[in-house]
Write a protein that binds this DNA or RNA. Structure first.
Length: 685
RNA sequence: GGCUAGGUAGCUCAGCCGGUUAGAGCACGGGAUUCAUAACCCCGGGGUCGCGGGUUCGAUUCCCGCCCUAGCCA
């Protein structure tokens, strides 16, 4: 028996869980359940990640304390995970006594071992808000390509990376005032000292090969010191011996894994050191998204090693979730929260769909709603559940108990023989292959029943035993498949266990078929998904503007790209065809105010505009109106903009929308404007 | 811009180290059946394997360039 501690990444406590979180939790949960079915002791812990500037500011904005904010969110996160059947041994919070203790212990150990250095850095400071500004809280003009409204760390238009002080005309996102430079002493973790250890560790099988390839980049660039402190005001843990300095959220976040297991150990009388001491024989597995790889494959193993703890056994990274082929996006309505899903549908179909598409690599996964429906309805309901459903009636009519022996033991053995293979596919995270094998076996089971035709046999009273035998075979085939799927569909497996009279607990149980035992009355184990309901997962009228989430989520998208507007209609004489009101409503037309306007070098047709679409949504849009309008004439004007036009990369930068104009074959273009009273952000309908 | 990964049937995806007619599920067309949640079973149509070069007797599979998508850049 192996002792295993498994984690998934801590969700940030500034908003609800979305499908990306659910995907990761489902993957981790399936893996943990599969390990338990093999007889291993496997505990899955997680926690909310609660610290940092975004949470501090969000609480301020809502007029509550950060503690109140994270308490509310934690309750919501717990409930959502639970409703998706995520079986956490413990779900904790990084804002906890255990986490403070672990974080301080680690810091002191690192400091004592000489891994912490101190030096002054210059950083942007907002004198109005009286706080230092993280890079993403400073915006200005890109020093390289002059694109407007870029974050302080990199330019989304030309891709340049730089520091906030390089920006032209920088402004604080918080107060809107120009930041000043201030000096402050920070604490650094000396990562380079762990280079050889990390190189060895990354090639030791702890991470997938393609991930190790990615890490080469960090090594070849040279490992830099990691800044682990932040200045007050900051929501987090104050660093012992350094008043006014706080641990950077990314230092204490992974420590949350320890804190959760410490709380678990306290509650259940287990021993923390069994998992974490340097000589631990337990396994430690982290499931994460590929976006946070380096925190888990560089800093975290180094911090653990430096502080005298064990390193992770494996870090399992997965790709991102796209919806209908595109990045999840609030403006597209495809930013699906776990709660939104649960309000409409049961959890298991989604677990099944995720499992059916989760492989061991870091490829992104697409959630296609159409595929989701057909996959679950046909694989699970039409094929798997159908096996039990079509046999149960015959068994009930034959007395309600199974036959004393199997008519086709060889076929059964084929099914039972793959148990070990299925188990190892789960362990290697190749769920996609496991599901494929199971589905293929389900086909074989249906073929078997089809060939035996118990409904024909049942017409002959002399053959009642044959009918029962065939269905006993079918029920037992069903049982093996249900066992193989039980990590994915735990609630259905439990109901199936009740129907079978034997709970599903171990892979090995299937080595012994059920014979002669009594079946409970059959009740439908799963119902079909209604495509109409599934379609409502995507919001018809997406949230209009990215509200000031830029403040609460530093990584909020600057632009809000959207589907290309596809208008499908029969052709008509003018070449456009009829559209319905639904087609029209796909267009997000809004009034915008031109804030800035300039010529574009290298183009005699285009003007570069900065247009305010309300609610802080400022877009860069290129428009071919230079022949009719001068930049000066544009500034301050109100115009009508298609706000959800797919952003287009042009030689001069990205154009995030289109300004509406009237024109025909004769020269000149004419801007469309709202009447007096029209204001930025108003929608045009 | 650099790095990593991906671009295979209408859709979602498999295809190990290069080798004979490129696979599955769904969708579609035809047939069979009625035990089963209009489920299941059989047959079929459908792909210039992102584009362009190269290596090779032979490339979806290897190499180079380009285009597109996603993520990361402390």
């Amino acid at each position: 028996m192996r002792r295993i501690l498994v984690t998934s990444a801590l969700p940030y406590a500034n908003g609800p869980l979305h499908f990306g979180h659910i995907l990761e939790a489902v993957q981790t949960d399936i893996w943990a359940r599969a390990m338990r079915l093999s007889g291993h002791e496997c505990r899955y812990v997680c926690a909310d990640d609660t610290h940092g500037t975004p949470i501090m500011l969000k609480a301020q904005a809502e007029g509550i304390t950060p503690e109140e904010l994270i308490a509310g969110i934690e309750a919501e996160h717990r409930a959502t995970y639970q409703d998706f059947l995520i079986d956490h041994a413990f779900f904790h919070s990084t804002h906890s006594d255990e986490n403070r203790l672990c974080t301080e212990t680690i810091f002191k150990a690192l400091d004592a071992a000489g891994h912490i250095t101190r030096r002054s850095i210059r950083q942007a400071y907002d004198e109005t808000a009286q706080m230092f500004l993280p890079d993403r809280y400073v915006k200005g003009m890109c020093p390289k390509c002059d694109a407007q409204d870029q974050y302080g760390d990199s330019c989304e238009v030309c891709g340049a990376t730089y520091s906030p002080s390089d920006l032209k005309n920088p402004l604080s996102v918080i107060s809107g005032t120009p930041p000043v430079e201030r000096e402050s002493e920070h604490l650094f973790f000396h990562l380079a000292a762990f280079e050889s250890m990390l190189k060895e560790w990354t090639r030791s099988g702890a991470i997938h090969e393609s991930v190790a390839n990615k890490l080469e980049e960090w090594f070849s660039g040279g490992l830099r010191d990691w800044d682990i402190s932040r200045d007050a005001p900051y929501f987090g843990f104050e660093i012992p011996g350094h008043p006014g300095k706080y641990f950077y959220v990314w230092l204490d976040a992974p420590v949350g894994y320890m804190a959760a297991s410490l709380a678990l150990a306290k509650r259940d009388g287990l021993i923390f050191d069994d998992w974490w001491s340097a000589d631990s024989t337990a396994e430690l597995h982290h499931f994460i998204g590929k976006d946070i790889l380096y925190f888990h494959t560089l800093f975290w193993p180094a911090v653990l090693q430096g502080a005298g703890y064990r390193r992770p056994t494996q870090v399992h990274a997965h790709g991102f979730l796209t919806v209908n082929g595109q990045k999840m996006s609030k403006s597209r309505g495809t930013f699906i929260t776990g709660r939104r899903y649960l309000e409409r549908l049961p959890p298991e179909p989604l677990r099944y769909y995720f499992a059916a598409k989760l492989g061991p690599g870091i490829d992104d996964m697409d959630l296609s709603l159409e595929d989701f429906v057909s996959r679950f309805n046909s694989d699970v309901v039409g094929k798997l559940v159908n096996i039990a459903s079509r046999c149960a009636g015959f068994v009930a009519r034959g007395g309600g108990h199974l036959a004393p022996k199997l008519p086709d033991p060889n076929l059964y053995d084929e099914f039972a023989a793959v148990a070990h293979r299925i188990a190892s596919l789960y362990e290697s995270r190749d769920f996609i292959a496991a599901i494929r094998e199971i589905a293929a076996l389900a086909d074989r089971a249906n073929q078997y029943i089809d060939a035996q035709k118990p409904w024909n046999l049942a017409k002959d009273p002399a053959r009642v035993d044959d009918v029962l035998a065939v269905c006993t075979q079918g029920i037992n085939l069903f049982r093996t498949l249900m066992t193989y799927l039980s990590p994915v569909l735990p609630a259905m497996a439990e109901r199936a266990g009740k129907f079978l009279g034997h709970p599903i607990l171990r892979w090995d149980d299937v080595q012994q078929p059920l014979l002669g035992s009594v079946l409970a009355p059959y009740e439908p184990l799963a119902t079909r998904l209604d495509p109409k309901v599934v379609a409502t997962l995507i919001e018809e009228t997406p949230a209009a503007a990215p509200t000031p989430t830029a403040v609460t989520t530093p990584k909020a998208e600057a632009a809000t790209p959207a589907n290309t507007v596809a208008v499908v209609a029969p052709p008509s004489p003018d070449g456009k065809g009829e559209v319905t009101i639904d087609d029209f409503s796909k267009l997000d037309l809004r009034v915008g105010k031109v804030l800035e306007c300039g010529l574009v070098d290298g183009s005699d047709k285009l003007l570069r505009l900065q247009i305010d679409l309300g609610n802080g949504d400022v877009r860069q849009i290129f428009s071919g109106i230079r022949e009719s309008y001068s930049p000066e004439a544009m500034i301050g004007r109100h115009v009508v903009v298609i706000a959800n036009l797919k952003p287009r990369k042009m030689r001069f930068g990205i154009s995030q929308g289109m300004v509406l104009c009237a024109s025909n074959d004769s020269p000149g273009v004419f801007l469309v404007s709202p009447d007096e009273g029209g204001a930025p952000g108003m929608t045009v309908t």
